[in-house]
Design a binder for these strands. Structure first.
Lengths: 201, 201
DNA sequence: TCCTCCTGATTGACGCATCAACGATTCTTG
DNA sequence: CAAGAATCGTTGATGCGTCAATCAGGAGGA
C-alpha cells in the first residue's frame, strides 16, 4: 500500500529504519543519528508518498486536459498576472523561484510552440521581455478552470478547514527549515511578486 | 516571499485567483469552478512551495554528502531491505511505485557505476535479478545516516508530534484523493512490501 | 576612455522521467 | 500442441532540470 522505497528495521541499537528507506541500520556506520521510530516513519512515508504523487498528478491533469506541462502553465500564469502580459526574463525567474537557466530552456521550447514571444531590447540591453502571445493567453485561460477544479478536488475537498490550516502551518515550518539548511538554491531567492491584477481574456 | 507562480485576482465574479497561479479569472471561460479564496490560496501556495523545495532539498543533500541521486538512493535502499540484497526488477519497480521503464533506465546507469549488478536468469526467463554490489552496499550504508539526519532536521524538528500527526493525516487524505482521481499511474500500483530486515554492512 | 567587475541570459552536457514501440518469454486456451 | 494474449524488460525520442561555461551589456574606478 504505502509501498515505495520503504525502510526496514536494520539491526543493532538504532531504533528503527532510517528516513524512509534503507535497511542499513547496523550499529557501525557513522554518526549517532537517531533512526525514525514507527510513528515518525509513518509520517515520513505519508509525506514522501505525497511528494511523489501530487506534483505528477497536477502535471498530468494539465497535460491531459490542456496540453500544457506544469512548468509551462506556471510561466503562462506568471505572465498573465502582469497587466502588460510581459515581464523581464529575470523577473519571471525570480517570481517563479527558478534559476535563469531553467527558465531559458523552457522559454525556448515555449517560443517554438508559439506560447510566448521574446523581444530582446528593453532599456537594459541584456534583458529580454517575455510576452504572452494570443495563443499563450488562450491556453492559460482554457487551462485554469480545470486546474483549479483539480486542486480543489484533491487538496481542499478531502480536508476540513482546520486540517487545511494545519497543513499550511506544517508546510511553512518545513519550508523554513529547508531554507535555513542551505540545501536549496534558486527556489529560495524569491522576493517580490504578490498579486497584481490579472489581465484575463 | 512566497513568490512562486503566484496568482492574481483576475476580474469578474470569480472569487479570487485560481489554484495558485494564473490571473485569468475573467467571467467567460468554461466551468463555474470556484476560484480559491485568500485563505485557500495561502494553503495552496504553502503546499506548492513545499512540493517545489523539499524533494530537491533531499536530493541535493544526498548528492552533496554521498554522491548519490535521490532515485539511486531509493533503489539501493530497496535492495538493501532484502535479505539477499537481490530482487527481481519488476518487484523492485512495484515496491518503489515506479514504472518499469524508469527503473530500467536508472539501473543501466547504476550498473555502469558499479552500484548494482544484473543477472539475467531466474526461474522466469524474462526477468532480471538486481543485486547490490559491495560498492552499492557501502554507498547506501554511508549515505543513510546523513539522510535520516536531514529528514529529521527538516521535517521532524520543526514540528510538534501533534503537527506531525496532522500532517500525516492530511497527506493520506490528499494521496487518497489523487488515487481516486485517476491522475496517477505507476505510483499507484504499489502493493506489498513492508519492512523485512536490513542486511546492513 | 579603458579596464575590471557584476549582472542577465544562453548554451551544451548530462542525469532523469514519460511515452510509445519493440523483442522476448511465459501463460492460456482451443 | 499451437496460436493468441498477457507479462517482463529494454530502447529511442522527447521534455525537463542542473551545472558549468560562455557571451553580452552595463556600472564604477583609475
Amino acid at each position: 500500500m504505502e509501498a515505495h522505497a520503504t525502510p526496514a528495521e536494520p539491526v543493532a541499537d538504532a531504533p528503527v529504519a532510517n528516513a524512509a528507506e534503507t535497511g542499513v541500520g547496523t550499529d557501525s556506520s557513522a554518526s549517532q543519528s537517531r533512526w525514525l521510530d514507527p510513528r515518525e516513519r509513518e509520517v515520513w512515508l505519508a509525506l514522501r508518498h505525497l511528494l511523489w504523487s501530487l506534483q505528477p498528478a497536477v502535471d498530468r491533469q494539465l497535460q491531459r486536459d490542456s496540453g500544457l506541462s506544469g512548468p509551462e502553465y506556471s510561466v503562462l500564469a506568471t505572465l498573465s498576472e502582469d497587466p502588460q502580459g510581459m515581464v523581464r526574463s529575470g523577473t519571471a525567474a525570480r517570481m517563479l523561484g527558478w534559476g535563469r537557466s531553467r527558465l531559458s530552456h523552457l522559454l525556448r521550447r515555449m517560443e517554438a510552440k508559439g506560447l510566448i514571444a521574446r523581444s530582446c531590447s528593453p532599456d537594459d540591453g541584456r534583458g529580454q521581455d517575455i510576452a504572452l502571445t494570443s495563443a499563450g493567453r488562450s491556453a492559460i485561460v482554457e487551462a485554469a478552470p480545470g486546474h483549479v477544479d483539480f486542486v480543489r478536488s484533491v487538496v481542499f475537498d478531502p480536508l476540513s478547514p482546520e486540517q487545511q490550516d494545519a497543513l499550511r502551518e506544517a508546510c511553512h515550518r518545513i519550508s523554513a527549515a529547508i531554507e535555513s539548511s542551505g540545501t536549496c538554491e534558486a527556489v529560495c531567492e524569491a522576493e517580490d511578486s504578490g498579486c497584481d491584477e490579472g489581465p484575463a481574456a
